[in-house]
Design a protein around this nucleic acid. Structure first.
Lengths: 345, 345
DNA sequence: ATCGTTTGTGCAAACGTTTTAACAAAACCG
DNA sequence: CGGTTTTGTTAAAACGTTTGCACAAACGAT
């Protein structure tokens, strides 16, 4: 059907090997031949067949990204999209293609990645976030297959990863509230089996302890990465006899729930409750009021992940070294956080 | 390195062809041999090499999706994510993998898809939305390469596509406002070179004309798919001597801008202005107030697109017929739209 | 028994590349 | 000049599959 290397060779009066060498800029090809072959390639509309190439080179020039289980439940869609954009952009620059895959359950996830890995369809994988105990990580680790984790694995500290310093991020967010004079600060967290939730919680704790502020169990709510989580948290929190004046919320989406809850209960932000959130998704800025949020550089995370992975893929496995990249975060202060009200006591 | 079909064959004492046939459930393989070979495959951990398979079968079992130019500018991220999830889910069910690709400019977009198509890396492509005049469509059309468009092309009505009936959707949205008694209805649109903007505008027009309501040029704003667009539209609109009482907004993200604008100007929704929006992204529900929005079934759009494409790919090109799938939409009424104020005149 | 089918298996070519080893020709060197 | 090195090219094997054709064995029907 389509033009092959042999067709070009015949037409140019050289051997296929020569054409192949022209293609890969082999040093020992004479300028004259190279020019001629190139001309004929254009003329005939030749394009190398990647499958054949892959077969012999045992390399596919593609990586895959595994969307975590329920991208539906985790309302991190916006975050993932940013991340993916970063990955795709970087991969394209390095001449790699990106396969995207997901599964409806943890088992399906492993199955999906197994298909890709076993079928030699990809050279590496990027995993998004991680449960405390991730079967996909186990699988890849065992097979010595190159992968990088966006996030952190408690069980496997010795792997390639790109991450935010979530402890520090939460610490910074809390410090912001503290420096505004808040002394009663609560926390709406994510699922307790996700490393990111744990880390942010710890940063929050650290800041409060360090400042000698009370850490009250009833001001800490653990939930899902769902807006509903924020909504319910508010009904609970605001009915307490003693209420916080500031709040850290683990994700902007959850914060949306928080805001809606507060609105319905008739409280105002930031006058009645100051809020600082995480991830700084597009909607943080758009919200009414705009939300103070810690930007974690999602695009950058994806970009760096791809870069790190591809570098690893192109390195022989012996000299591959575990690296942990930390992408800097940055608190963006908007209208949802303000000075603490003067305490009447 | 890894186990090949030959290794299995040797160990099972049969020829490679036989192993291959076992794999593809060839009818003329005896039950006994099949069982034995299967056993050995498991034992040795054999997995077929997809690249080799692709090479001979001239088929890759993968499709690609092209993210439109500036997924940054078009703040349809959330919409795309939904769409992609639908595509990935369906493709997985049919045993296909999904490659994702994008370009920073129209030219780069064509380049990216050319790489995939020319390199025979994918069997088909799904294109997301479309400008009035899309170079990628041209490219694929010319090469007779299977693709499906999520959206509509004015120039090429004779292609596979999956779409919302945007004219009808806008008509329905407008009717909703009209039935609530609104007589002064405006429209915040998208970029005038995108088919979706045009269609929604037309539906809006149609409904108003049919109801004998005034179509006022100064109540119609064309902008980008950016929240800012909505924000600016409001400063303009609300300073007019005669203002609309209801508004159609082309996308939920834009509506966010509208809401913020109105908040800042001190107007309330829906008391001062009723709003109906499109796409029903997750945030429509979460907004304060929750936004009435036309759900266009993004996930379903992706799912159907993938299905249509794969069906086409697996059909010989002669008997491939242009199909246009319309995914039904549904107006979700929330708090942003209410009865028109009684007109004092 | 004989002959045609049916059934199960193997051989070998093909898919479109890359790459090793070999070799001829040209260039260099003293 | 003769030998050594460098330069440019090619033949052929390899990558891991699928598949058309051939063929032997087993089976059925006369």
């Amino acid at each position: 059907m389509s033009v092959t290397i042999k067709d070009v060779a015949r037409r140019a009066g050289v051997s296929p090997s020569t054409v192949s060498r022209v293609l890969s800029n082999h040093p020992r090809i004479s300028a004259a031949t190279a020019r001629k072959v190139r001309e004929i390639m254009d003329e005939m509309g030749y394009h190398p067949n990647m499958m054949a190439k892959s077969l012999v080179s045992k390399t596919t020039k593609s990586i895959c990204v595994i969307l975590p289980k329920p991208a539906e439940e985790l309302f991190l869609n916006l975050f993932f999209m940013e991340l993916i954009r970063g990955i795709v952009a970087q991969a394209a620059r390095s001449g790699y293609d990106v396969l995207i895959s997901s599964g409806a359950s943890e088992a399906e996830e492993v199955e999906a990645v197994a298909r890709l890995v076993n079928g030699r369809r990809v050279d590496g994988a990027v995993l998004l976030y991680s449960r405390k105990d991730d079967p996909v990580v186990e699988f890849l680790q065992e097979r010595k297959f190159p992968f990088v984790l966006v996030g952190r694995s408690e069980r496997h500290p010795d792997i390639l990863s790109v991450d935010t310093d979530n402890v520090q991020a939460a610490y910074d967010a809390a410090r912001h509230l503290i420096s505004l004079g808040h002394e009663r600060i609560g926390f709406v967290g994510g699922p307790p089996n996700m490393v990111v939730s744990i880390d942010r919680m710890n940063g929050y704790r650290k800041a409060l302890e360090e400042a000698g502020l009370p850490l009250r169990r009833d001001w800490i709510v653990e939930g899902e990465f769902l807006q509903d989580s924020g909504y319910r948290a508010m009904s609970m929190l605001m009915s307490l006899p003693e209420r916080p004046s500031g709040m850290l919320v683990v994700d902007d989406f959850v914060t949306f729930g928080v805001i809606r809850g507060l609105n319905e209960l008739g409280y105002r932000i930031p006058q009645d409750l100051s809020i600082v959130s995480f991830n700084n998704l597009a909607l943080a800025e758009l919200s009414s009021p705009p939300i103070s949020s810690v930007d974690i550089g999602s695009y950058q995370l994806g970009y760096t992940a791809s870069q790190t992975l591809i570098r690893a893929v192109e390195t022989s496995s012996e000299e591959r070294e575990p690296v942990r990249h930390i992408i800097p975060h940055r608190l963006i202060v908007r209208e949802s956080s303000m000075y603490a009200p003067i305490r009447k006591s």
